[in-house]
Nucleic acid binder design. Structure first.
Length: 759
DNA sequence: GTAGTCACTATTTGA
DNA sequence: TAGTGACTAC
């Protein structure tokens, strides 16, 4: 079926392989796309080509990594096929699936107005469960338990299956968290009771919906989505792949699925992503046609060469040869700094120099780091030099307390059963419902296995609390009414007023409080924009894109960092390497190139994780078009200590003749015994921390590897002690003779600074 | 029931 | 260091 309009001129803009990938529209297709190889082009043109070939836009499902990418894609498709581009189902896994669940959730026992729990909410649920099970939160690290549950869900392991899985139970046993399966079970029940889905549920419940197939719902979606495209396939997890299969195997045959990815850029295994999916794909779809995009159009030859040298150190990868027709360009710059402060200064200097010399704009430049905590220093020096910058990641606007509070009211008015939201605001602003009352509600809700809201009525509170609870219930009910009859903005305005939070800040009358009021106003502005967006984008006539408060909440909870990025501002970009995926800049600074930082010390023990760090570095370098500058600091202030790290091993992997350094890398320290603060602890010119038991200037800690059971040691803070034991995780139990509280402390040797005074 | 202090502890990436 | 949770005093 061909459209009458046969202008396929856009195909002329593609190279041979790209064109083949675009025009092969039937059957399974795999595109392995190296960095800068025109992947986005292929994706957009392929969709445009499908539409031009007579496929209805709403029959195309395109799953991208960010919502912004989806939006951009639609814009570019529009240029080829016009307005109908906006009818393509394009978005992230999470946003597309949550859109489907908003319509279908009731079929699997959830309300269609379900709340989306973010990571904080999940943790809070787990904390509460720990309490009810009388488990020690110190042993049951909440974050660890959460990610355990998350990965179980991502691997389709139900609580029941978890409870009978020897391997998992054993692992939990080893980690001294044998009750994890019990927590998992309770967690799932609690979320269901609250009408809430966490991020994993958006995938898992979609799977459940299609798999259990109530009312033959699978048929509805299989027959709608005739063509599937998946970007960044290397970062999908097992569960996501299973859902894809449910979508794409229609009547056992219709395999119009196209996946695009690059195994060398797989950087999310910590989130459950697995490269296995790429390998598995070839097995599951044996008639797959594979196209490899190997020509890099983005970067100069030096950059491509460096990237190749690095990635070749990895053992497992799909064979490909990335090349470029671009000339050598500028060599890779390597800068050594003495301290992280100097690194900040040097990078700022270099930025000024590059701006002048190559007439770069701020927005052509990015500073990438391994951890978000590194941003502070660069922020300081850029500000000092009057260079505009923008930081992505870290604490976002929606994480601010006052914003979360307002949002909790909103969530609660949409879904009363949202326990996490209720706990947050039932006594905020203070209305005399204290710990005791809240504790009582939690207890009774748990005992009866209902949400907290559902038992508010039946509890007999004492006089004051009774009145307060009544007030609170009224606020929520009134907000709910408003949400039913008004748009998001009007409802938000109502809630902000009714909740009394603004009054609270006004009464406080401080600069800080004013800042919070400003933030709330910014939130309202954002909601207004969202509400009016409807009028602006006429083409976006997707069924459930109404501008209700409920939809606003969904949008913000599924927003990625890149979605928040504004393009038209001329500022230097600062972000983690992870967040930089898919982006490109004329000049890129990768900072903190040190052992224990990049690669992260968390990855040093496992070869697999080390390879992932290397891929991450590969991603970092290949963001650059013309300039790549690497830097490291000799010493760095971390967690309140000065740490001395060797230059990153990744620097060795780039050949010297394409590096231009302000030092000779030959002078690199040889890999001797780990220098974990060995001997060269330096006293900093700053206030001496209070309560030191030992004079810091004479304190010379020994390497952790030398600590043995039975030794007498010195600890800066606790003074003299005896090492009683060291367990398999390198945690030492030490009895300190003059410790005030408990004499025995468990010290992580990895971080501890101990000086041996007697063997 | 609330506010303030204090000591302890964990350090990555994120939808 | 920074964030948190427990404890104490009002």
């Amino acid at each position: 079926m061909q459209n009458t309009d046969l202008s396929f001129s856009y195909l002329d803009d593609l190279n041979d392989i790209q064109r083949q990938a675009v025009t092969t529209i039937e059957g399974p297709v795999m595109v392995i796309a190296g960095p800068g190889s025109g992947k986005t082009r292929v994706l957009t043109f392929r969709i445009a080509h499908l539409i031009k070939s007579g496929i209805a836009p709403w029959q195309i499902l395109a799953l991208t990594f960010t919502n912004k990418a989806a939006k951009e894609m639609k814009g570019r498709i529009e240029q080829v096929v016009g307005q109908s581009a906006y009818k393509v189902w394009a978005g992230t896994f999470h946003s597309i699936f949550s859109r489907i669940l908003r319509v279908e959730a009731h079929r699997i026992g959830y309300p269609n107005d379900f709340t989306i729990y973010d990571t904080d909410d999940s943790k809070s649920v787990i904390k509460e469960i720990l309490k009810t099970l009388s488990l020690n939160p110190k042993e049951y690290n909440v974050g660890a338990v959460r990610s355990r549950i998350s990965s179980a869900k991502s691997n389709l392991i139900t609580p029941k299956a978890y409870g009978t899985n020897e391997e998992l139970l054993m692992a939990d046993q080893m980690n001294r968290r044998p009750m994890t399966h019990k927590i998992y079970e309770k967690y799932v029940a609690k979320c269901l009771r609250a009408g809430a889905m966490d991020f994993d549920d958006l995938l898992l419940q979609t799977f459940k919906l299609l798999y259990t197939n109530p009312d033959n719902i699978r048929d509805k979606y299989q027959s709608q989505f005739k063509y599937l495209m998946v970007d960044e396939f290397q970062d999908t997890n097992f569960l996501q792949y299973e859902i894809l299969k449910l979508f794409s195997i229609y009547n056992g045959s219709n395999h119009n699925i196209c996946i695009v990815g690059d195994d060398a850029q797989s950087i999310y295994s910590f989130r459950g992503a697995t490269i296995e999916n790429i390998l598995q794909f070839e097995q599951d779809f044996p008639d797959v046609k594979t196209f490899k995009l190997e020509q890099n159009y983005r970067s100069t030859n030096y950059i491509v060469q460096a990237a190749n040298e690095i990635i070749n150190q990895n053992s497992r990868q799909i064979q490909k040869k990335i090349w470029t027709a671009n000339d050598g360009g500028h060599k890779i710059k390597l800068t050594k700094a003495m301290t992280e402060n100097e690194e900040g200064k040097l990078v700022a200097d270099k930025i000024i120099e590059q701006k002048n010399r190559y007439s770069l704009a701020n927005k052509d430049i990015a500073i990438l780091y391994r951890t978000n905590a590194q941003s502070r220093i660069f922020e300081e020096y850029l500000r000092r030099n009057n260079i505009a910058y923008k930081i992505y990641g870290g604490i976002s606007f929606y994480q601010r307390k006052e914003i979360k509070d307002i949002i909790a009211y909103m969530r609660l008015s949409i879904n009363h059963k949202d326990d996490e939201a209720l706990k947050r605001v039932i006594n905020y602003p203070k209305r005399g419902i204290g710990q005791t009352s809240v504790g009582k509600i939690i207890q009774i809700a748990n005992d009866n296995e209902v949400s907290m809201w559902e038992c508010l009525n039946s509890i007999d509170f004492n006089g004051r609390a009774k009145k307060s609870v009544g007030e609170f219930v009224n606020i929520v009910r009134a907000s709910q009414q408003k949400a039913k009859t008004s748009d998001a903005y009007k409802t938000a305005l109502f809630i902000v007023k009714k909740s009394g939070i603004i009054d609270l800040f006004k009464a406080e009358n401080s600069i800080e409080a004013q800042g919070r009021i400003d933030n709330i106003n910014a939130l309202l502005d954002g909601i207004q924009e969202f509400t009016e967006d409807d009028i602006l984008e006429e083409g976006e006539n997707i069924d459930n894109q109404e501008r209700t408060l409920s939809n606003f909440l969904q949008t913000i909870s599924l927003m990625t960092d890149q979605d928040k990025k504004e393009d038209n501002v001329d500022s230097v970009t600062m972000m983690s390497v992870h967040a930089a995926k898919g982006l490109e800049y004329k000049s890129v600074f990768v900072v903190g190139m040190e052992e224990n930082l990049f690669p992260s010390y968390m990855s040093l023990s496992s070869p697999d994780q080390l390879e992932e760090e290397r891929r991450l570095f590969y991603v970092a370098i290949t963001r650059a078009e013309q300039h790549i500058s690497l830097s490291f600091a000799n010493s760095r202030y971390q967690y309140g200590n000065v740490r001395f790290n060797d230059p990153s091993r990744f620097l060795d992997e780039i050949s010297d003749d394409i590096i231009e350094a302000n030092i000779t890398m030959k002078a690199k320290p040889e890999f001797g015994p780990p220098k974990v603060l060995g001997g060269n602890f330096k006293k900093l010119p700053q206030n001496k921390p209070k309560g030191l038991a030992v004079d810091a200037s004479n304190f010379k800690p020994n390497p952790a590897s030398e600590i043995r059971v039975g030794q007498q040691i010195l600890h800066l803070k606790f003074g003299q002690g005896e090492v009683l034991s060291i367990d398999e995780r390198n945690v030492a139990t030490i009895r300190f003779s003059n410790a005030i509280d408990s004499p025995e402390k468990r010290i992580m040797l990895q971080y501890a600074r101990l000086q041996i005074i007697e063997e």
